[in-house]
């Protein structure tokens, strides 16, 4: 069984006023000039490499970290690298009010937790969810909390297929297909 509990330090992709950055596209996450890279281990160095203010993310990120972003995260291209670059850094999952369809699938298929939560915008804007906070979330229940600030967090539980693929590790290891 893969762990249903994720606990880690959070990085909140927000503007200086706390509003979550929306529509972060795959060229900002993993620029197309690095698309020739096919080794996952080499992709981490370019994560968020074209997102103003976050270019040093690969140096700052630690395995176990969790990312929070604004709505429509992963807009744009179909590149798997935009998911794999976070996997390479050991990031444990991404939470956002919504994801682009392709990005969401890519993450699901890779067994990488992507969690939809409408309830992130307000705490981020009000300073109740900030980079550096420690959060703990339960994938199976859709509930969690900000340990640092003792605030609760809720999100959409994974769909059956998402949970199945997560459990299998990735879509290739899915038994029922």
């Amino acid at each position: 069984m893969r762990s249903q509990i994720l606990r880690g330090r959070v990085w909140v992709l927000a503007w200086p006023d706390g509003r979550l950055i929306e529509d972060i596209d795959t060229d900002q996450i993993f620029h197309n000039s690095h698309l020739h890279i096919t080794e996952i281990s080499q992709m981490g160095a370019y994560a968020l490499g074209n997102l103003e203010g976050w270019k040093d993310f690969p140096q700052k990120a630690k395995p176990g970290d969790i990312l929070v972003a604004g709505r429509n995260f992963g807009a744009g291209s179909s590149r798997q690298q935009a998911v794999d670059c976070f996997v390479a850094l050991g990031v444990k999952g991404i939470m956002a009010p919504s994801f682009s369809a392709i990005y969401f699938r890519n993450a699901v298929n890779a067994g990488f937790p992507v969690l939809r939560s409408e309830g992130l915008e307000r705490p981020a804007a009000e300073g109740l969810l900030r980079s550096g906070d420690e959060i703990e979330i339960d994938l199976s229940s859709g509930r969690g909390r900000n340990v640092t600030r003792n605030e609760s967090i809720s999100f959409e539980p994974m769909s059956a297929i998402q949970a199945e693929i997560y459990e299998a590790g990735n879509v290739f290891r899915l038994k029922r297909s």
């Binding site: 179909s78 590149r79 392709i102 890519n106």
Partner: peptide, 16 residues
């Protein structure tokens, strides 16, 4: 539908 390389690998093998 555009898809990432994991999806397309699966589709090459399974056709679905």
């Amino acid at each position: 539908q555009g898809m990432g390389d994991i999806d397309i690998t699966f589709a090459f093998r399974m056709g679905k």
